[in-house]
Each structure stands twice: as structure tokens, then as C-alpha cells.
Design a protein around this nucleic acid. Structure first.
Lengths: 116, 116
DNA sequence: CTTTCATATGAATATTTATTCATATATTCA
DNA sequence: TGAATATATGAATAAATATTCATATGAAAG
């Protein structure tokens, strides 16, 4: 697995034990990707707003204090992560949350933040 | 609040309602910062490993397949985010989780990832 | 006290990423 | 059909970030 660590392995049995139940590389990458999407204040604001109710791009732009263009770019990232979905009505596109875990993740994060 | 959005605000009452209970800017930034720390596969691996038990930098480097130097840089970020703590015994520094919310955040994230 | 080893750190580099700007698409309304 | 509007998109720029490399620190062992 590893050619990189130039120190001696100090605790071989412990390392082996950890490796045994370690999540698959793909799982780790997907998890990191997910949290990366949460890890931007513009996207966090979008998610916060959409937790209240569905909103169009224009409303979202106004709420998060950004341009519709920048907002649209961020919405694409949220969409790719399957965190939001959209519905077009006329000219207007309405976005809403697409996952019931979002609020949970948000709240757990909030717990950490508020304890610091 | 906003000079940037060049479209007309379509739903003024809804926007006002959202703004009413909207988290403080600082809260949003802190939350995004927290999730940003989770949003890197090296750090995610470190956290996964430390969920099992405390580990030294060398063991961690080996497990995540990186150099002690890179690992140490990442550990500093995790430390600054108050996600890990350390204890020095002799030459060796042992890191462990410093927050009971980590596992919860991790698991909620996992739920999302596994449903895709 | 000198060497060795585990870890930390600073600077440099390479990569990623957010935003902006210009432009495209698509829908409504005149 | 043509103008206006909401949103999307691609390219460019600017900023943030991960890793590497060289070096520093600090503890233990000889």
C-alpha cells in the first residue's frame, strides 16, 4: 500500500487492525467530495435558504449576496452532488433540496461550530 | 444587503421571510470552514483512522499513503479546526479525535454517499 | 555531547476552485 | 416575429490549497 513513509512503522499490529476495516478508497473520495460541496460559504448559504423553502435563482442570488451567474455556477455543483433539484416554471427555475440528510449534516456541523 | 443581483426580485415576501431567520454570516463561514476540513480525502482518511484509535504521525502516514510531512501539515489543519488533539510521549506524537460530533457528521455524510 | 529518529515548519510549486465577464439559450409578452 | 427577462455556460482571472523539498526542533540513546 505504501512506498512513501520514510519512518519506521512503529505499531505494526495497530496499523494492520486499522487497515482491516478501513473504508474503500472510493468511499473516502466520495465522502470528501460531498463535504467539499458543503465547504463553501456561498453554497452553505444556498443550502440554508433552501432548507426553508424552494427558491428561484434570482431570489437565491439576492439572499446570498452574489450574482445570478455565480449563483448558477454554484447551483450546478450542488446539483451534481445530488443535493438540490430544480423545476422549471416558465422562465423561472426553482431549486429545492434533494436529500433529507442535508439538514442532519448541517445540524451536526452546527453542534461542533457552536461548541468552539 | 445586496447590490449585486441585476435581476428583479421576484418573490419579495419570501426573500424577507428567509432573511428573518437566516444564520449569521459568521456562523455560515464557520460551518463552511468546518466542512472544508472534512472535504479532503487525506484528512478524511486521517479522521477515519483516528475513529478507531489514537495513532502516531508515522502510523497515520503509512495508513493514508502519504509522507509524514504532508500528514503533519494536514494534522495541523485538523488541530486548528479542533477536530484532533495530540499528546507527546517521548519522541512520538499521538493524535486522537477531539470531538464527539465527528463520527456523527461522518455517518450522516456516509448515508448520503451510499444512497447515490 | 553527538547522533539518530519522529515530527514540525516554511517556502516553492502545482493544482483546484470561485468569481467575473461575455455570450448563449429559452420562455414570455408585446 | 422581435424585444425583454431568467438562467446557463465557457473562458479567463484570481485566490486558495495540497504536496514536496529542505531544513529545523526536540527527545532519546549511545
Amino acid at each position: 500500500m505504501n512506498e512513501f513513509c520514510e519512518c519506521n512503522i512503529i505499531h505494526k499490529e495497530i496499523v494492520t487492525k486499522i487497515q482491516k476495516n478501513f473504508p474503500k478508497e472510493e468511499t473516502i473520495i466520495n465522502l470528501a467530495e460531498l463535504f467539499k460541496v458543503f465547504g463553501d460559504s456561498s453554497r452553505m448559504k444556498i443550502l440554508c435558504a433552501l432548507m426553508e423553502e424552494e427558491l428561484c435563482v434570482c431570489d437565491l442570488s439576492y439572499i446570498i449576496g452574489s450574482t445570478p451567474s455565480a449563483t448558477s455556477h454554484q447551483l450546478r455543483i450542488l446539483k451534481q452532488a445530488k443535493l438540490v433539484k430544480y423545476q422549471k416554471r416558465g422562465k423561472v427555475v426553482y431549486y429545492s433540496l434533494d436529500d433529507h440528510h442535508i439538514k442532519e449534516i448541517y445540524e451536526k456541523g452546527l453542534n461542533h461550530v457552536e461548541e468552539i
